[in-house]
Computed example of a mutant assay.
Amino acid sequence: MEYPLHKLTIGALAVEAGVNVETIRFYQRKKLLPEPERPQGGIRRYGPAEVSRVRFIKAAQRIGFTLDEIAQLLQLEDGTHCSQARDIAEHKLADVRHRLEDLRRMESTLADLVRRCAAGRGKIACPLIASLQETR
């Protein structure tokens, strides 16, 4: 369903941005999305800027940015602070690479334990359980 983009209710904003209403409210509580004034006896209305902002937040989350990092990026959204935005992205990239190293170590350890479990026969202790008990 298409809505006039300058007169969106919170529900229509959620549909246009591809999120649910509670996500919109959460972003408002976190100060990532401004909450428009409510006209006397009326309903708050949203426009294309809010749709774009929610889409920006979701896109940033998909590539791993935290809400705090997204808040920093939103402060730079006028496009004149590219070096600061790059610094935030470089820090995130370093964090992602560190997590990948950790995941590779975890994968290697688990693969080894699974291999040892498959090779174990008879009345020996399960290598996986034994290994985890030793690391207490």
Results as ranks from 00 to 15, higher is better:
Arg38Thr: 13
Ile70Met: 07
Thr9Gln: 09
Gln28Cys: 04
Glu69Ile: 05
Tyr46Phe: 15
Asp95Ser: 13
Gly42Gln: 03
Met106Tyr: 07
Gly41Thr: 08
Val19Met: 00
Leu33Trp: 01
Arg25Phe: 01
Pro34Lys: 11
Leu13Cys: 06
Ala12Tyr: 02
Ile43Ser: 10
Pro48Val: 12
Arg53Asp: 04
Leu100Met: 15
Pro34Val: 05
Glu77Asn: 11
Pro48Ile: 12
Arg29Gln: 11
Leu103Ile: 04
Glu37Phe: 06
Glu35Met: 12
Arg97Tyr: 07
Val54Cys: 06
Leu113Thr: 05
Thr109Tyr: 03
Pro39Met: 01
Pro127Asp: 10
Ile10Gln: 10
Gly79Lys: 04
Tyr46Glu: 10
Glu101Lys: 10
Glu2Thr: 13
Ile88Arg: 04
Gly79Leu: 03
Asp68Glu: 15
His98Asn: 09
Phe65Glu: 01
Pro34Trp: 12
Gly18Ala: 00
Arg115Phe: 04
Glu90Met: 13
Ser52Phe: 08
Gln133Pro: 04
Glu16Ser: 12
Ala17Glu: 01
Arg104Gly: 03
Ala49Trp: 05
Val19Glu: 03
Ile24His: 03
Ile43Val: 15
Gln40Gly: 10
Leu13Lys: 07
Asp102Gly: 14
Met106Asn: 02
Ala125Ser: 10
Tyr46Lys: 05
Arg38Gly: 06
Gly79Cys: 06
Pro39Val: 02
Phe65Ile: 06
Met1Lys: 09
Thr135Arg: 15
Ile10Trp: 05
Gln61Ile: 06
Thr135Lys: 15
Pro34Tyr: 10
Val114Ser: 08
Ile10Thr: 13
Arg62Gln: 13
Glu37Pro: 05
Gln72Gly: 09
Thr135Gly: 09
Arg38Met: 11
Gly41Leu: 03
Arg29Thr: 04
Ala119Ser: 03
Glu101Gln: 14
Ala59Glu: 12
Lys30Gly: 00
Thr80Lys: 13
Glu90Asp: 08
Ser108Ala: 13
Glu35Ala: 11
Met1Gly: 11
Gly41Ile: 00
Gly47Phe: 08
Arg55Ile: 08
Glu22Cys: 02
Leu103Thr: 06
Ile63Asp: 04
Arg97Val: 05
Ala119Asp: 12
Ala59Gln: 14
Arg121Trp: 12
Ile129Ser: 02
Lys58Cys: 12
Lys58Phe: 02
Arg97Gly: 00
Asp112Met: 14
Glu107Tyr: 06
Arg86Gln: 14
